[in-house]
Amino acid sequence: MNEDHVRNIVEAALLAAGRPLSIAEIAQLFDEDVRPTPEALREALTRIAADHETRALELRQVASGWRLQVRAEFGREVSRLWPERPQRYSRALLETLALIAYRQPITRAEIESVRGVAVNPNIVKTLMERNWVRVVGHRDVPGRPELLGTTRDFLDYFGLADLDDLPPLAELKAMADLNPQLVLPVASADAEGEEPLLPVPAPDAPA
């Protein structure tokens, strides 16, 4: 079985499946006596990716495997195929999701302590219904609170291969970098004290 043939079978499978396929799944498609090695399949995938360089589709590796998907740059036009607008998620939902994604496993109390407000049960319910978030265990403290974590579906949905693909979290700045004025001698404090303390307006915090 030559390389072109393997390449085409892989591409055909990806198109027909309409979902991510893992290397193992693709390998299973071939008869045993002509089954390509995982390396050969990876090679085929690399070629498929290269062939689509200038096309509307791109090959992307997500958590469950490889998939051919529409390039995001055409999303605006393509989305008009469907009359309904894609669902928008509230800031609260996205922040909750972000905390679960970056700090998993995490309890509701920990989410609350960062966001400053109680976790809306509907948000967690929505995240679970979308199968983005699941209970991964219980913290061994009184009350055994649920530990929340993200799912493979979450990674697939946002086009991520693993959690390391998440956009990097901003660095925490040291106090001194934030407001160098703090280290100035006390004598001059009367006038400069009018400067805003923080980059964030305070009323935002408990929102």
Partner: peptide
């Protein structure tokens, strides 16, 4: 998915 990209 469903907003910016679709699985072919």
């Amino acid at each position: 998915l469903e907003r910016d990209t679709w699985v072919a």
